[in-house]
């Protein structure tokens, strides 16, 4: 366990298979880590937080929930998925979005700067500390969803968002859930299980009232979203209303986004050869010996 970046760099070292562990909440994504790999842990804790910059510097090992507790004191949050025990670094390298993507944007856009340890054991900085930056290639986007196969995140700078003044979950039944996404302006999530639609509204209280009144059909306020099935499918948003429940099993679909939380596992997605080669070429350049999180493969995620 580390509380500083230098210690993390030393733990990773320049050679030998190594894996970094966060909360272990998505440890299965993209395959199992090779058993020979040494386990390391990234630094924990908020390093610097200035609410007026809308950025936070945080150790990658920090639990997302702990980070969000600190940010909430200043009325802010990030759009990283918060699940029990999940770490900032884990949320980033797995890169899955939460159910509020429609309104809050994608997790991949939260990362402004990453300080990571390369396969050679060097501390590398990707991106920059400001909310806007196009200096050089956008390596931060490459790191999100990389399952730690290009570098091991040590410390990151994240974009924060203000927490809106009001928020509520509503539940109702409509013929076409797309109408809910079209008619509401404050929806951060529209979920649909084939029968029932849930919508999360957030923003100014009066705007929420306006949106709630405009919803088609009868909606009632509820405590939260339904329990989400464990497997994630990915579809073009326009195709969601035609999805086949005999393939997915009971499901909850994110309208306007395209993620389907399904009971059945998602069948493998075909990856064109040229794209597969390009992915392998990137990995070859960053980690030719495959020492970083060996066994995990973003193409299998």
């Amino acid at each position: 366990m580390n509380d500083d970046l230098a210690g993390f760099v030393a733990d990773v070292g320049p050679s030998g298979p190594v894996c970094v562990r966060g909360g272990g909440t998505q440890w299965h994504v993209g395959g199992a880590v090779a058993s020979a790999a040494t386990t390391v842990w990234a630094p924990i804790g908020v390093v610097e937080y200035e609410p007026e910059e809308m950025t936070v510097i945080v150790g990658a090992g920090t639990p997302v929930a702990d980070l969000h507790v600190q940010l909430a004191l200043a009325g802010q949050r990030t759009n990283l998925v918060e699940s029990p025990g999940s770490s900032v670094g884990g949320a980033l390298v797995v890169g899955r979005d939460g159910v509020h993507t429609l309104g809050r944007g994608r997790a991949r856009d939260a990362l402004l700067q990453a300080r990571y340890v390369s396969a050679e054991g060097a501390l590398v900085t990707a991106g920059g500390p400001t909310v806007k930056n196009v200096t050089g290639f956008d390596l931060c986007r490459l790191l999100v969803g990389s399952l730690g196969t290009l570098g091991l995140l040590g410390e990151v700078i994240l974009r924060t968002q203000p927490i809106p003044a009001a928020a509520r979950w509503l539940q109702g039944e409509v013929d076409d859930p797309r109408v809910v996404a079209r008619t509401t302006r404050t929806a951060s999530a529209v979920l649909w299980d084939g029968t029932t639609t849930w919508v999360h509204l957030e923003g100014h209280g009066t705007d929420l009232d306006t949106d709630a009144a405009a919803l088609p059909g009868a909606f009632v306020e509820v405590d939260g979203p339904p329990t989400l099935p464990t497997h994630a499918w990915s579809m073009a948003p326009a195709e969601l209303v035609d999805l086949d429940p005999s393939a997915t099993g009971p499901f909850v679909a994110e309208i306007g986004v395209g993620t389907v939380h399904a009971t059945a596992p998602c069948p493998p997605v075909a990856v064109p050869d040229a794209l597969r080669r390009l992915n392998q070429s990137v990995r070859d350049r960053f980690d030719p010996d495959r020492r970083l999180n060996p066994g995990r493969d973003p193409l299998a995620a």
Binding site: R108, D138, C140, G145, S234, V269
Partner: peptide
């Protein structure tokens, strides 16, 4: 080659993100 896609989750690295701004 197509990088990224209209479906929200794509297998592999975010090469779309790496390409934008390159």
């Amino acid at each position: 080659v197509r990088l990224g896609g209209v479906e929200p989750h794509q297998p592999g690295y975010d090469l779309r993100g790496a390409f934008v701004g390159s």
